[in-house]
Design a protein around this nucleic acid. Structure first.
Lengths: 350, 350
DNA sequence: TTGTACGCGTTATCAA
DNA sequence: TTGATAACGCGTACAA
């Protein structure tokens, strides 16, 4: 087993100094053609590669991005990561993943673990518990220590940094308008409690679309699901709650759901009740994932372009990282980039 | 903006030496209670945290695991990562993700990028292109340099290391036996080309199950899909190929598909042709993901316990990492852990 | 009880 | 053309 070779070892073998080896490998003209060749040949033979950790220490940057997301088994988030990873890799960065599991404390611990030199900056989406507690001190402290953060999807005003978001209001408005123009008269929404920002915003879009069409939003047509029901373990409870919702709204003919799971579950309930889709009931979801594509009928959704969000987030972060180097000036010009949503029409609407 | 504080800065402020600060913070009894308190108070005030990079360099270990997978937007792989991340975090390790995108060169590049000191060991699943080329030199070189690797799911004999695998043969055998005992007489399989090890093994299981029941495997009932059809972009081609398969096998009454996508697509084709499930056709898939759970009818599948695979892989790797420290002896006792599959019965079988 | 010196692997600066 | 030295941040053996 040949251990990784270092400059020092090469120097010793070739009986030259460490700095000579270093320079030779970097093609410095200071070094004679002769020794340069010799060193390079030797280095190649032993497959020398500079040690990243030593470089990180010296350069005071790790060329690594920390990504913290609430959940990885999720089409949206894994797509975002795919986008981040692609851009990061192309620009010479690695990606460290941390999962918060929607928990405040795991989010904090993960950030602390990474903030101590392991990474150059964060890309993250806030956990539900954090949103609920509205405690954002760990983000602001991190930023204050000079570590840039890019928030995506779940962002809040209280944190002053770059953000990549979807225009949730506009996206859901478009969806609901589609239902209206398709002839739906009783459009319901299945959404989250208001402290989940994306849920709140999408509910806003729903109401705005109705009001624009002079339709008075009815409270009974708005179903706000509790967080706990959002997990895999409570699929049945979710189903029951939605079934109840159907029972309370006999004349419902259109549903806008703020995520895939709610939409797919609504479809399942409707099918059980023998409601024909899209004839008697049209459904639109938010977030374009595998479920939507492969559902029966396939689901019309608002696509958030998750991968593009990841790409933009990575570009934004790396831009800032590499800007800070040249201009030591604090360019406090934080950007908020809005990714346009797109309505992908499938079989669940007419 | 207060930058991260170092031992040196604290030492200067308090007018003591760096090592005094270091010792004080680590509660060394060498240091007087007095200075200890003083130092600790100061450190706390400035929120001192040791720099991970410096520690890594000093200790020659990074407490970071490198994970390279072919694809992240995939229920199986993201579940594995979830398992890895959970164990790694509990044991004080970080997780760096690299994506090979099923490409040989990306796999090599990613590994080289991480192998130069960034991580202590790898957990990975081999890309399809690598399996096709059967070129495993990069793995063996990495192992030779003293960096342990744990392979999961897609593993090969040519690489001598720890492995976490599913008993593909047994798992698919169980599935096909289920179809047989449910009364299916003409059972087809939708699988991959043979160079994809999991596809090959699952095909073996299929054949074994048939032979055990004295059923002669018919070539026409075996459909081997080409890789390219495996991507999102070629969904229609996949559908056409499967439709052709149905046309060639009018009396087919059972299908075993080696992954979720094939199974779900087969269901779609069957539905289009008006074949009632599970009455006229029973289907079982492999890999338990969201698609299976939410399909109509919901799909009976062979679950691989992806998350558990990730947990085991992480434990195995970390065990080896921490073993190498104590015993400098080369414990070349590589383990192969087989994770039992489980047949999850849903509505697509009787 | 405190401080000095060294090493982890690298590069940059300055001296020979 | 080459080499010695310092520095990145930390911990520790040893000296004071």
């Amino acid at each position: 087993m040949k251990r990784k070779v270092t400059l020092k070892q090469i120097a010793r073998e070739l009986d030259v100094s460490i700095s000579t080896v270093s320079k030779a490998l970097r093609n410095s003209i200071e070094i004679s053609e002769d020794t340069r060749q010799k060193v390079k040949a030797f280095a190649k033979l032993y497959n020398y590669r500079p040690n990243n950790i030593a470089l990180s220490l010296k350069n005071r940057k790790t060329k690594t991005i920390g990504v913290i997301i609430p959940e990885i088994v999720h089409h949206f988030f894994s797509n975002v990561i795919r986008g981040i990873e692609q851009v990061a890799n192309n620009r010479g960065y690695n990606v460290i993943i941390g999962l918060s599991n929607e928990s405040f404390s795991k989010e904090v611990i993960n950030m602390e673990m990474l903030a101590n030199g392991s990474i150059d900056g964060f890309i993250l989406s806030i956990s539900k518990e954090t949103l609920l507690r509205q405690d954002y001190h760990h983000f602001n402290e991190t930023i204050n220590q000079g570590m840039p953060i890019v928030l995506f999807d779940r962002a809040v005003e209280e944190i002053n940094c770059d953000k990549i978001i979807v225009d949730d209001v506009k996206g859901s408005k478009k969806a609901v308008e589609k239902l209206i123009s398709n002839g739906c008269k009783n459009i319901g929404i299945i959404t989250t409690k208001d402290y989940v920002s994306v849920g709140r915003l999408r509910t806003q879009g729903y109401i705005a679309a109705l009001e624009d069409s002079k339709i008075h939003p009815k409270a009974s047509l708005i179903l706000k699901i509790d967080v706990e029901l959002d997990s895999e373990d409570h699929l049945e409870d979710l189903e029951n709650e939605i079934e109840q919702f159907f029972n309370n709204n006999k004349h419902i003919d259109g549903i806008f759901a703020v995520n895939e799971l709610y939409a797919i579950t609504a479809m399942k309930v409707a099918r059980k009740k023998g409601i024909k889709m899209p004839d008697k009931l049209q459904i639109i979801g938010f977030t374009d994932g595998v479920l939507s594509k492969h559902a029966t009928p396939s689901l019309t959704t608002v696509s958030q372009h998750a991968q593009k969000m990841g790409e933009k987030a990575a570009d934004l972060l790396i831009d800032r990282l590499e800007l800070d180097i040249d201009n030591e000036v604090e360019e406090e010009h934080y950007k908020t980039i809005v990714i346009e949503t797109e309505l992908i029409e499938r079989e669940s609407t007419k």
